[in-house]
Amino acid sequence: MLSFIVRRFGLLIPTFFGVTLLTFALIRLIPGDPVEVMMGERRVDPQMHAAAMHRLGLDKPLPQQYLDYIGKLAKGDLGESLRTRESVWHEFLTLFPATLELAIAALLFAGTLGLLAGVIAALKRGSLFDHGVMGLSLAGYSMPIFWWGLILIMFFSVSLGWTPVSGRIDLLYDVEPVTGFMLIDTLLGDEEGAFLDALRHLILPAIVLGTIPLAVIARMTRSAMLEVLREDYVRTAKAKGLSPSRVVFIHGLRNALIPVLTVFGLQVGTLLAGAVLTETIFSWPGIGKWLIESIGARDYPVVQNGILLIACLVILVNFAVDVFYGLANPRIRHQS
């Protein structure tokens, strides 16, 4: 198991460098530079522009800039935002819990509902429920997130008034940020109604963000379950006189989970990508919204390192999934 982890970890290093190179190049491919954006509508004095670029170290040749960037990274320095002069790391830490809270809520929504729907659809194959779930999940998977989010806001927030339109919590509440997770912080604080308000703010974004993972998980669970239920060992389990729920959930789902788990890991990437859109639609103060604004401002350090941090996160999650995959599937674990 240890060698398995070490080997998987070794694979992370090239991925890491690939990401730095890609973000470094991509942000510079966008027309315009930070100084131009800061100057805004006014005409930029070429001399001032050059001086500002020099001050920011952006007048050096690109390879040199890249090496400087990597050199700073090696020292653990993620630089500071060109806009706010705040440390990128600090900004990330402040905003990340909001995104994490949203992502966890979305995954819980997608995971529980997706597994349940997938298992039932597989058990009742060919039924109305099965066709319904498969049709809805295809629709959900094809849904553009921004459109879906707006539709839900129009219906539930504007027409019905059930949920707030945007933000994490009503401005009336003054919540002390202890953990950064609004649901936990409101529970720790003593303001009445704050927790429920935070929860109501969370529901719609979580549903919007969780829709695609929900669709993928439901379909994947269904097909994996259908395959597993045909296996000989499921027949053996029945021949042992085990209860149907034991046969389905212990002997069936346990094995069906192996491919579903992989998809689950891949969905974390989709989730963070989706978070950018979802956070923008719902004005959710997380890293997605932060990155979008930084790209607009050509805030190179924030974009480069923010994306790098997200990439690391995706890599780490997939790494964790791989390790967990080894735990879930004894055949992988012993293969080394």
Binding site: Y233, G241, R254
Partner: peptide, 17 residues
């Protein structure tokens, strides 16, 4: 319990997990 059965292919009859 009283009525038990074993099957043809033992390699697939046991749960791999």
């Amino acid at each position: 319990k009283d009525l038990a059965m074993i099957f043809q292919d033992p390699m697939t009859a046991l749960n791999p997990s």
